[in-house]
Simulated scan of single mutants.
Amino acid sequence: MKTISQSPRFIGMAAAFLSLLITGNALSSDSHEAPAPTAAATPATPKAKVAAPAVNDDQMSKALFEKISKGSGDIIIRTGDLPAGAAPSEVKPADKPKAAKLAVKPADKDAHDVHWSYVDGPGGPENWGNLSKDNLACSKGKTQSPININVDRAVKAELAPLEFLYRPSPLSIVDNGHTIMVNYGEGSNLLVDGRQYRLVQFHFHKPSEEAINGERTDMVAHLVHQHHDGSLAVVGVLMSTKKPSSVRKSWFGDDAVIENPMIQTLWNNIPLIKGKTEMPGVMIDVNQLLPADRNYFTYMGSLTTPPCSENVLWFVMKNPIYVSEEQVKNFDRIYPMNARPLQPKGDRLIKETRGS
């Protein structure tokens, strides 16, 4: 056992330290709580644990010298060195950080509570880029769609024909809250200039998003294709209720546009509940949405809905398909207007197939 030489200098230091500890103990006992009746009394409530019995000089001295005799290198008396019941129990501080987190959490919502729409306001087209960092192209992009196609400024060129390698598919239709969309089965492809894109889905806008010489048609169908490398190609098929005078019948004929059978099949099967996909067991053939004349305009653009991703190859058919006014009105009853405003063309090149 280690022997401690109790020199006058050491005893003096110890006495001074004991005096400070006893004074501190007296200060710590200065509270507004009534003291316990006796040191041996059993605490009646949790608060009685805080009011600890006083530590006398003999207990403090004994604890101090036992600490020194262990040769720990310091002479600080800790809670564990005092006799059982002589030290006050620790009171845990209030858990403030948790309260702070609860106060901050609701602030995380802000813009995410606003969903994009075609109506002017916080979620309108001019604010799409502010709703999410994923939508920055909607406001910062340089090659956005749709655009106005000025026929006089389009470059007439010998372009590769569009090969529509489409086959029938079971109908899978959904009202996604922005449009009526059809998810198309596998095996249908667009082949252009040796590059193949798979038809993924098609959907509708009213009026047409694209404008030809500043004019929009009643509606448009967008056929969305994807290459295996992830790049996109969209075919825009304009839809009109008015046939041009060159294809009208003679004066005794009927100029009214008859219903498009493909469109009527789709409208007949629109789900009653938004967001619910219906598969009614009906087969459809998307070839019925294509005009007989396959001439087209082409340019580089973007998706016309958030996130407005760019580098999308666009083909806009020069000639529309025809639908009845009643078919347009039926779509109007669900979506009166779901077309993005025209975007700046900038210095983009628009090409046009040479032909009618």
Rank of each mutant, 00 (worst) to 15 (best):
N189Q: 08
Y322T: 01
L159Y: 04
L136T: 14
R333D: 00
D254M: 10
P43Y: 13
A154M: 03
S145I: 04
P53A: 01
S208W: 09
H228P: 13
P53T: 03
Q264G: 04
E210P: 05
K142D: 05
F331V: 05
P8L: 13
A137R: 01
V235E: 01
V312T: 13
S29L: 07
A51R: 12
G129H: 14
A221S: 13
A221G: 03
F65V: 14
P88Y: 07
A15D: 10
P170F: 11
S245W: 13
R78A: 04
N287W: 05
W267P: 00
I263L: 14
E215W: 06
R216L: 07
M181E: 14
N213Q: 11
D229S: 12
P35R: 07
V50R: 13
E210A: 06
G346M: 02
E186V: 07
A107C: 02
V155C: 00
L190N: 03
V174E: 03
P170V: 11
P161F: 03
A41W: 08
H115Q: 10
I284V: 15
L131Q: 05
A84F: 04
P244K: 06
R340H: 12
T277V: 10
A103I: 04
V312Q: 01
T23C: 05
P168M: 00
E209T: 14
I22G: 04
A292F: 14
A16T: 14
S169M: 07
R340D: 01
V282L: 10
A14K: 09
L266R: 12
H205K: 05
N183F: 10
I321N: 01
A63E: 07
R78I: 03
T42A: 08
K142P: 04
D30T: 10
L159T: 02
M317K: 06
I173E: 01
T217N: 08
P306N: 01
G124Y: 10
M60K: 05
M300S: 15
M1P: 14
D285T: 13
S309Y: 04
P37T: 15
P280C: 07
R216W: 00
P336E: 00
S72V: 07
V237S: 02
E163N: 15
I273L: 11
P170K: 09
H112V: 02
I350T: 02
F65Y: 15
A36I: 07
S7E: 08
P93W: 03
T143F: 06
P88T: 15
K2S: 10
R340A: 03
V235R: 03
L223T: 08
